[in-house]
Structures are given as structure tokens and as C-alpha cells.
């Protein structure tokens, strides 16, 4: 590598291959864990500041270091423009606290969606303008179509296709559709020197 600084691109590319747009709003970055190769597009908001204020009893008793991860994201995730990741919150033992939001690998979040789930599995496609309610649990290989409202506390089992307000199971992911969830190709198409999508 030459010593000359490369021109400022639209994205910041980290050592682990994350591509974070300069125009993305990441609050509380120290509480946001990125697994690598994750794309965060402009105008994305991740609320890492909403950390858990009350530790689980087992943790506080053992005296371990408080786990302050608010949002953890796996590898090859794609957060489209204008989406928002927000840890869910609720009353716990009489006091309000946020809980961490965990997202697996190969998770696509469409433009303008708000995700407040407790867990999002791997290979999940969340469409555009979707609202995922607080403490929803989305398992692996789930497709949420555009405009869906997933009610709070809903559990979406694997291989479901859901849509509607509130979300309703409308189909199952076919056996041949598993590969369509892979986001390795789309990862290459964004960044400071994007490659064209393979035809």
C-alpha cells in the first residue's frame, strides 16, 4: 500500500470488511458489534446507546464484566438506506430496561424498515417499510415481505414467508430458495469501488 491516503469514499471500510456509510447514524458505537462484511448504507440508524441498564441476576451475582452490547450483527448483513435498528425495551423487575438486539448472518433489512426484534436469525430477508415489533423472534430462513407489521412478541419459525398487518404466514420458503438468501454477491456491489452484480 502506498502512503498516500486514498480519497474519501462514501463508505468507511474496516479491516473486517464492514462497509459503513459516512452518512449513517450510529449512536453508541462502542455497544454495536459487527461480525464483518456487513454493509450499512447511508441514513441507517443503529441505536447502540439503548443498552441494558439492569443486568441479569446471574451475571450481576457472579460479578462478571457487564455485557453492554446493545446491537450485535453477524456477517454479510445488509442494512438498506433509512432503516433503523433499535433494541427492544420493557419493564423488568419494576424498572424499564432495554434488551440486546441480536442479528445473525446474511440478514437483509430493506429501506425504511424498523427492527426492534429480540433475535433475528440467519438468512433472513426483511423487506422495505417493515416494522418488526419489540421482542419479536425471527428464526432462520424467513422472508418478510414489504410493508409487513410484525406484532411485538411474535415468533416467526424457520422457512416462513410472512406479510400483512399484522404479519400472517402466507407461505413457506421452498427447498430451492435457500441460496437466494445469500448476501455475498450484494456485498460486493456496494462500497467505495463497487463491482457490478454478476449476471
Amino acid at each position: 500500500m502506498s502512503s498516500r491516503r486514498p480519497p474519501r469514499g462514501e463508505y468507511i471500510e474496516t479491516d473486517t470488511g464492514n462497509k459503513v456509510a459516512r452518512k449513517a447514524t450510529l449512536v453508541g458505537t462502542q455497544n454495536i458489534m459487527l461480525g464483518g462484511k456487513t454493509v450499512i448504507q447511508p441514513e441507517v440508524m443503529i441505536r447502540g446507546d439503548l443498552i441494558r441498564t439492569i443486568q441479569a441476576s446471574s451475571q450481576s451475582a457472579s460479578g462478571a464484566a457487564p455485557n453492554s452490547t446493545a446491537v450485535s450483527i453477524g456477517r454479510y448483513c445488509f442494512l438498506s438506506r433509512g432503516c433503523c435498528l433499535r433494541p427492544p425495551g420493557r419493564l423488568y423487575k419494576g424498572a424499564f430496561t432495554y434488551m440486546p438486539l441480536r442479528i445473525g448472518d446474511h440478514v437483509f433489512v430493506g429501506a425504511g424498515s424498523v427492527v426492534q426484534a429480540a433475535t433475528v436469525g440467519s438468512h433472513v430477508h426483511i423487506g422495505a417499510k417493515v416494522a418488526v415489533g419489540e421482542f419479536a423472534i425471527i428464526k432462520d430462513y424467513v422472508r418478510i415481505l414489504d410493508g409487513t407489521v410484525v406484532p411485538p412478541n411474535m415468533v416467526i419459525p424457520s422457512f416462513s414467508i410472512v406479510a400483512g398487518q399484522p404479519a400472517r404466514l402466507i407461505g413457506e420458503v421452498p427447498e430451492g430458495g435457500h441460496e437466494a438468501f445469500e448476501l455475498r454477491d450484494i456485498y460486493k456491489t456496494v462500497g467505495n469501488n463497487p463491482q457490478p452484480a454478476p449476471s
Partner: peptide
């Protein structure tokens, strides 16, 4: 009415936080 999931909540003290806690 809407096929959303139902949660068990205490009737008296509006959604009791203790109920939802795992422990």
C-alpha cells in the same frame, strides 16, 4: 380479532413487569 400473538398479563396492576421476567 387480528391473529396477533397473545401474551399473558396480570389484570390488576396493568401489565405486571414481574410476569414477563424469566426468573
Amino acid at each position: 380479532v387480528c391473529i396477533g400473538p397473545l401474551a399473558v398479563t396480570s389484570v390488576e396492576t396493568k401489565p405486571d413487569p414481574r410476569l414477563l421476567a424469566p426468573d
